[in-house]
């Protein structure tokens, strides 16, 4: 396939991906303030985070200054993203597959970035020697990513199917995701092997994509690989795989959200408390049109 099909296809997918992801993130951000539900260890608590302590350990904490440090938070997140430390510690038999799958994805993303850089080099006329180095790195990272990613995805499929701890919980969609991921990696391997110079082809493709060149072309295995990957990008925001972003919120907005009420929050809370509730349990007494506030102040269960 050549020409504007590629531009059309890939840019629309990227656009939709960004729109859907933005929608998901915004809908999380726009959710109302919730009741506190933090869980130790809260890592931004300076020093005390080491053993899981919080500012509530302070005598008359409300009169003391709070000391926060984001270093442990960053260190923790880095350990999770780069080493899958939680899975290593608590679920060792899953780790080899989880780790390789994730690293497959990381490396493929890195190789895409390198292809993009190479595309810029081509446009700007950078000396061939420099480009060769980058292309070489991209080629190696690409193939390593494809191979370990395949190991991870296929391994997880087997793990899900063969291990009794997983089988009952693995719906068709769980396998579908893994098949999809495996298809990306395996088609990548095929494209890599069947191409005379994979990295150059990819870099040129990226350049043409980027410069809206109508001569853009990809055929055979490479075309298949690009199409599968692109469709996956469109599929991803609809799945639990968005955890690569939303994990930020499960941690920062819930687990580590230990903010005491402040003026800004109280304003929001007043609006929330003024809302009526419609729960039908007899003790809620919602048939009397009560708001949360009424329900606590007037219908406070005295009779």
């Amino acid at each position: 396939m050549t020409g504007f099909f590629w531009h059309f296809f890939i840019y629309i997918i990227l656009f939709l991906f960004l729109v859907i992801m933005a929608y998901r993130i915004l809908s999380i951000l726009r959710m109302p303030v919730h009741l506190r539900w933090e869980l130790a260890p809260v890592l931004h608590d300076k020093e005390r985070y080491r053993y899981g302590g919080s500012y509530l350990e302070e005598y008359e904490w409300w009169g003391k200054e709070r000391h926060k440090s984001y270093l442990p938070v960053i260190a923790y997140m880095a350990g999770e993203i780069l080493l899958m430390k939680g899975v290593w510690k608590n679920n060792r038999s899953l780790w080899p597959f989880s780790f390789t799958l994730h690293y497959g994805i990381y490396l493929v993303i890195i190789s895409v970035i390198l292809h993009f850089i190479n595309a810029m080099f081509i446009v700007s006329g950078t000396p061939a020697a420099v480009m060769d180095v980058f292309r070489g790195i991209a080629a190696v990272i690409g193939i390593v990513g494809y191979i370990i990613g395949s190991i991870g995805a296929v391994g997880l499929m087997f793990k899900r199917y063969l291990d009794r701890n997983y089988r009952a919980y693995s719906s068709f969609s769980a396998y579908f995701k893994l098949i999809f991921l495996a298809a990306i990696f395996i088609s990548g391997i095929i494209a890599w092997v069947s191409s005379v110079n994979y990295a150059t082809e990819m870099s040129v493709f990226t350049r043409d994509l980027f410069t809206l060149d109508s001569g853009i072309t990809a055929t055979g295995a490479l075309a298949a690989h690009i199409i599968i990957t692109s469709v996956f990008v469109l599929y991803l925001p609809f799945t639990d795989m968005v955890h690569f972003i939303t994990k930020f919120f499960t941690y920062h907005s819930v687990r580590w959200d230990d903010e005491p009420q402040d003026e800004k929050m109280v304003k929001k809370l007043r609006d929330l408390i003024a809302q009526p509730l419609t729960w039908s349990g007899p003790h809620v007494k919602s048939d009397r049109g009560n708001s949360w506030g009424d329900m606590v102040q007037k219908e406070n269960g005295k009779e």
Binding site: W37, Y166, D240, M241
Partner: peptide, 23 residues
């Protein structure tokens, strides 16, 4: 939102992101 503002965000975050890793 009206009925469950108290825990809506934590609930949805927990419902939508489990990958069934069984850790």
């Amino acid at each position: 939102k009206g009925d469950n503002w108290t825990f809506l965000q934590p609930l949805l975050l927990s419902l939508e992101h489990c990958v069934r890793c069984q850790t």
